[in-house]
Amino acid sequence: MILSEKFWENKYKTNKIGWDLGEVSAPLKTYFDQLINKDLKILIPGGGNSYEAEYLFNNGFKNVYVVDLSKTALENIKKRVPNFPNSQLILGNFFDLNDTFDLAIEQTFFCAIDPNLREKYAYKMKDLLKSKGKLVGLLFDAKLNTDHPPFGGNRKEYTAYFESYFKMDVFTKCYNSFHNRQGMELFIKLTKN
């Protein structure tokens, strides 16, 4: 299954973005609010409208990078946050990135890629993170769709992808999910080995 730039651009142009909360998710906001080092270099892959990037940037984190296949999604960020550096809004494929980061935020990207790419995602994330870098975010813990995103899964499946590359600091049911995702999300905080 090919989920192309055209596929995602069409989703944003037609506003068929049911996964978009319209705000930073509570679990990620809670995590961000305890971060002290504002110099962290942060990646948000498949960030879409990225209210997470907006929240971080507006709270003093100036090294936030969003990569997405949709030009419209990145333009939406720029409209909301005019001071967000253009060079940190990357129109492109996550798997083509070559930079390194201290922290990567997972918010509905993993569930949007073809499940056949999940092992590749874990490996790529390991390459993109600096030594002791962290992957933090949310993964669906539910059976969802098999023929289009969002694709679901479970902790056992996900552990198999990540355990070779990361220490599982936190990998648990999310207690403060958005109301329509209650009981369907895992909160993860993984540290690169």
Rank of each mutant, 00 (worst) to 15 (best):
P82A: 04
L74R: 02
W19A: 08
G22L: 09
K134G: 07
G47F: 05
S4A: 12
G137S: 02
Y175F: 13
M125N: 00
W8H: 11
Q34R: 14
P149N: 11
F166T: 04
D33G: 11
L28E: 05
L43C: 01
Y161M: 05
Y161E: 01
K143E: 14
I113A: 02
N83M: 10
L21N: 13
G137I: 00
G18S: 03
V81D: 11
Y161C: 02
H148Q: 13
G47R: 02
Y31L: 08
N15D: 06
V64M: 09
S25V: 10
K71E: 15
G46H: 06
N180W: 05
V24P: 13
D102S: 14
L74T: 05
N63F: 12
Y161N: 02
F187G: 04
L138D: 06
T72Y: 04
K120A: 10
N59I: 04
D141L: 05
G183Y: 10
V170G: 03
G18Q: 05
F151R: 01
E106D: 06
S25H: 11
K11E: 14
E119L: 14
N176S: 07
N49L: 03
E106C: 02
I42R: 01
N154Y: 08
P115W: 02
V136G: 06
L190S: 00
R118I: 00
L186R: 01
T172R: 09
S25G: 14
K41D: 00
R181K: 12
D33Y: 06
V170H: 10
L128I: 00
F162H: 01
I90E: 07
I42A: 01
K16F: 02
L35Q: 15
H148D: 12
L138P: 07
L128K: 01
V64W: 05
K173A: 08
D99E: 14
G183T: 07
N116F: 14
K126A: 13
L56N: 04
L103A: 07
L40V: 01
Y55Q: 03
D102Q: 14
T100H: 11
K143R: 13
H148C: 09
K156P: 05
N154E: 06
F101Y: 15
F187S: 03
V136H: 08
N10T: 08
I90Y: 06
N49R: 13
D96M: 11
E23T: 12
N37H: 14
M168I: 09
N116Y: 13
F110H: 08
N193R: 11
D102W: 15
Y121V: 01
V67R: 06
E23F: 06
L35V: 07
K62Y: 12
V66L: 07
L35A: 10
L35R: 12
G46C: 00
E9V: 09
T108P: 15
F61I: 03
K6L: 09
V67E: 03
N154I: 03
Q34W: 14
L128H: 01
R181W: 12
N15I: 00
Q34H: 15
G137N: 04
K78N: 07
D39S: 15
Q34S: 15
T146M: 10
N83V: 13
E157I: 11
K132F: 15
P115H: 02
G153R: 04
D99H: 07
G18I: 04
